[in-house]
């Protein structure tokens, strides 16, 4: 017996497959020549600074924006011509809370269930309320919920029609750490059931919870792969410095040949560069200082991204 999923969509293990997507608003190019592939069942992290084109890319994937150029499929459906079919199978959680603030939790969920034509909207909403742990709050207005609950409800509304792909645009912005962890546990549980999740975020710890990540800046996809691959690809050499008076040291080191980046991390300093020889030469003098301990370490994901961004900025100018 064939499953419904294979009947409806081409049998492929790629959920998102797009090539050369570009989009401009007026004279401003927001996304340029972006290609990406996301495997089915993967949690794909989408990272990049504000205004880098993450939201625009997500909107193009679900048919809310038409790309100026480029082709591709989402769940096997053409993003240009089959937006209607994509809408049916994709759950999109917008950056801003987009449920009706003046409807109750239950009414919001029932509305979504009816739009997607679920057979029993009432039961679907009731089941989702239980699943979200919102029992007892079903008659509360969505606008009155706290930030964390709002996010959970929004995720619940997205997953209500059993989508095959979730597009989450900065779902945890402004949510406390505990709610964030619960949110991610939920996302992992959904992915384990075979759902593909594309999630954009600014948080490095969240990036590390993804199966794969992509980094986008100035509308261009700069790197992608697993966290280890991205770090390895960066070819960045990082030293962690511990000691006193690191503030002065940071100012001294910055801008020396071979040193691309100096960033304080708590009581230590991360000194990174791509040119190993130049870096070693520049820090040699400081390594001799007795009040500092130098240790070669792996760059953090943040080091890698900031370095990428600095470099992209240079290219961009």
């Amino acid at each position: 017996m064939q499953s419904v999923a294979t009947l409806e969509t081409p049998a492929t293990d790629i959920a998102i497959d797009v090539h050369g997507l570009s989009k401009s608003f007026g004279s401003r190019k927001v996304v340029s020549d972006l290609s990406m592939q996301v495997k089915r069942g993967a949690i794909y992290g989408f990272l990049g600074p504000n205004g880098s084109g993450k939201t625009t890319t997500i909107r193009m994937l679900c048919g809310l924006l038409t790309p100026d150029s480029g082709e591709g499929t989402c769940l096997g459906y053409n993003i240009r011509t089959e937006a209607d079919k994509i809408r049916r199978h994709v759950g999109y959680m917008t950056q801003r809370f987009s449920l009706y603030q003046d409807l109750s939790v239950r009414e919001n969920l029932e509305f979504v269930a009816r739009l997607y034509g679920l057979t029993s909207p009432r039961r679907a909403a009731r089941d989702m309320i239980t699943r979200l742990g919102l029992n007892g709050r079903e008659e509360q207005l969505a606008g009155e919920l706290s930030g964390g609950w709002k996010q959970r409800l929004a995720l619940g509304a997205c997953t209500l029609p059993s989508p095959k792909l979730l597009l989450l645009d900065e779902p945890t912005a402004g949510v406390d750490p505990k709610a964030r962890r619960e949110f991610w546990n939920e996302i992992h549980a959904l992915a384990a059931d075979g759902l593909t999740v594309l999630v954009s975020t600014h948080y490095m710890d969240e990036a590390e919870r993804c199966h794969e990540i992509a980094y986008i800046a100035y509308g261009q996809l700069l790197t992608h792969g697993t966290v280890q691959e991205v770090i390895a690809h960066s070819a960045l050499i990082t030293y962690t410095v511990n000691g006193a008076q690191l503030n002065g040291l940071q100012a001294e080191l910055a801008g020396k040949p071979g040193i691309d980046m100096v960033a304080p991390f708590g009581n230590s300093l991360h000194v990174s560069g791509r040119d190993e020889q130049a870096l070693e030469a520049s820090i040699a003098h400081y390594r001799a200082r007795s009040d500092l301990t130098w240790e070669r370490s792996e760059p953090s994901l943040e080091d890698v991204f900031i370095e990428l961004m600095n470099r992209a900025q240079d290219n961009f100018r």
Binding site: R87, R88, Y92, T94, F97, L99, V112, L115, G117
Partner: peptide, 13 residues
Amino acid sequence: ERGTMEALLSMPI
């Protein structure tokens, strides 16, 4: 204004 339009447009209606 309330941002609900974006979600509405992404749904099949």
